[in-house]
């Protein structure tokens, strides 16, 4: 049985900007850390006051044999609490529970070219990909979209790989996405990580230009908020209220319901749950269009409900 839980100790914290911190983790027990390949993320359990959050963070460097995982965490406003905890309360030496790395955003070795597109802090898994792909000698091009005041910061983060094929663009209109996607050679794979609107735009544009399905890859840590609703548990009885700023999965966990989960981003399929009544609002990338339309399943980690009540087979 592969060990899934790991105790991490905070080895270093570096402030990159008022809202961005680089966190370096090592094993708290001295056991070697498993390899975290480019694109992998770890889930950390964060105790924020009386709430327990499990947040996923991408590794920003491939961790083969370094014994360390590096993350960058953005302080968001409004926050579900996790980023405020990391920014305001986490100290060097603190021990955090978490999972071993999982990779739902890998690169594809048979690609002729890798096109990386990042938005804001979505750059994190792309930093790891850029390092790994450059080391392999693969053909790679990176475009980072940033707010005007953060262009210098991201340029500095990308400085080790500076070149014509690594560019930081200020503002939403800084990059002509259609021109970029139109000039890619056959065999290109595109990887996008950032706000959902950016990922939707890249995916929509690529599909419209005729890119086939398997060539478009997106990281899937989505926003979880929305209209509040109630979950009724058909098997165990009881009801759980899902607030506007928490995910269905978090609400279930906080209520003590043993709900399976892994990526917490709607990608892996681990939290698949049968819906008995009510209309799910699907936000995952796991279910097929037909499964979503059937209304029989829901991924509680990211999805919500169109109806006031959702009855789950839990």
């Amino acid at each position: 049985m592969i060990q899934r839980d790991i105790a991490y100790r905070v080895r270093a914290i570096e402030s990159l900007s008022p809202t961005l911190k680089r966190i370096v983790l090592e094993s708290a027990t001295g056991d070697p850390l498993p390899v975290g390949a480019a694109g992998a993320h770890i889930a950390l359990t964060l105790k924020c006051g009386d709430r327990i959050l499990r947040n996923s963070y991408s590794l920003i460097a491939p961790s083969d044999g370094t014994g360390r995982y590096e993350l960058i965490v953005r302080r968001t406003d409004p926050s579900r609490g996790g980023s405020h905890f990391v920014h305001d309360e986490l100290t060097v030496g603190a021990v955090l529970a978490g999972y071993v790395p999982h990779n739902l955003f890998p690169s594809f070795s048979h690609a002729r070219k890798h096109l990386l597109i990042g938005g804001g802090v979505g750059i994190t898994p792309l930093l790891a990909h850029l390092a790994a792909l450059r080391r392999e000698g693969a053909r790679v091009e990176l475009h980072q979209l940033a707010a005007a005041e953060e262009v210098a910061l991201f340029t500095q983060l990308l400085a080790p790989w500076a070149g014509d094929d690594v560019q930081v663009h200020g503002g939403r209109e800084g990059l002509d996405l259609e021109a970029l996607l139109s000039r890619q050679p056959l065999g290109t794979h595109v990887y996008v990580c950032g706000p959902a609107a950016l990922m939707d735009r890249v995916e929509g544009m690529a599909v419209a230009l005729g890119w086939p399905d398997g060539r478009i890859h997106r990281e899937s840590f989505g926003a979880s908020g929305g209209e509040p609703f109630t979950v009724r548990l058909a098997r165990s009885g009881g009801e759980v209220r899902v607030g506007p700023d928490e995910s269905m999965l978090q609400a279930l966990e906080n209520a003590g319901v043993a709900a399976p989960s892994l990526c917490r981003g709607g990608a892996c399929g681990e939290c698949l749950t049968r819906v008995l009544e009510g209309e799910p609002e699907h936000r995952d990338h796991y279910l097929t269009a037909e499964e979503k339309a059937s209304g029989q399943f829901v991924m509680p980690c990211v999805s919500r409900a169109h109806s006031d009540m959702l009855v789950l087979d839990l």
């Binding site: 139109s182 890619q184 050679p185 056959l186 230009l209 005729g210 890119w211």
Partner: peptide
């Protein structure tokens, strides 16, 4: 084909 682009 060496000159073609994605979408071809």
């Amino acid at each position: 084909l060496a000159q073609e682009h994605m979408g071809f």
